[in-house]
Amino acid sequence: MTTRISTRDVTTAPEFRLLVIAVFVFGLMAVLSPERFLSTQNLTSMAFQFPEFAILALAMTIAMMTGGIDLSVVGVANLSAVVAAIILTQYSNADMPASQSAIWLAIAIAAALCIGATAGLVNGALVAFFGLPPILATLGSGLVFTGFAIAMTGGSAVMGFPSTVALIGNATLFGIPVPLILFAVLAVVLHLILTRTAFGLRVTMYGANPLAALYAAIDINRMLLKVYVIAGLFSSIAGLIVMSRANSAKADYGSSYLLLAVLIAVLGGVNPYGGYGRVIGVVLAVLSMQFLSSGLNMLQVSNFARELIWGALLILVMVINTHAVTALRGSFRPKT
């Protein structure tokens, strides 16, 4: 209910710091390699690249807002993609007329979203009704979801889609890549959910103090179910984008995205203990990451080095965000 945010607050908010970082990284890359970084081709390719893990980061964000975490996002994404892929390869083929394959694509998307929602429901039920800690619940369920994907495919990739599938991941609409549009829509939706609905405020309040939420007569079980269903749906959308871009589906795609999703959420200022998080922060974090990643790519830094940089960044951001340095200094003096 921060009805009025005074100007003083804007510059001290962690999101403002992120904006500065995003602009700085963009500027740095633009200066280091103007003709390549600022080329239309690079900018477009960036816009195609990041939405898939950015959407997973949004899913992670809402789980973290409750003080939980969703370690099953990648598993849900792959299971959804595998189910959609199996439907597509079983019932449609490249020779089919576009109208017919579009119907099968719609059915496959619907099935993937159902899988995402069901998986979310399972996670939510484990956390809400069985009282499992979210880490364990989603660790276990993530294995189960991945396991189903393996069992259904025997561990190999499913491929051979009709060309309509490329619409999700590789097409543009008015010159804007479809994945980017999907991400933007989901980000706006999540932002509105978190800040403008009763459910969103309950999520924040529950994250701040679960026991007080119980005493405030908040229907916690229902809220948690919704949270994990939303996370599941977002994950399955990310899965569909991955499937379309890779033109195949496999149980172990995007295994590094889990870390990336946590990293972006934390980088975006979401409190892993719950109770604080803003979508705008997550979006800015995604952009900084993508600018950096793309820049490193141009500087021909290997994937492995990038992993190293992500990890270091995650810890650096935690150190800054939690004022850990003051804690360190304080630890050598009596506390006040």
């Binding site: 870390l259 990293l263 290997s302 190293l308 992500w310 995650l314 935690m318 150190v319 850990a324």
Partner: peptide, 27 residues
Amino acid sequence: FFIAFLGLPTLIVTLGTLSIFRGFLLT
């Protein structure tokens, strides 16, 4: 160091160091 002396959450720190160690090794 990060967990005991800087008081950072253990899951986040070790997720981060997982990729630092691995990234450093492979690079």
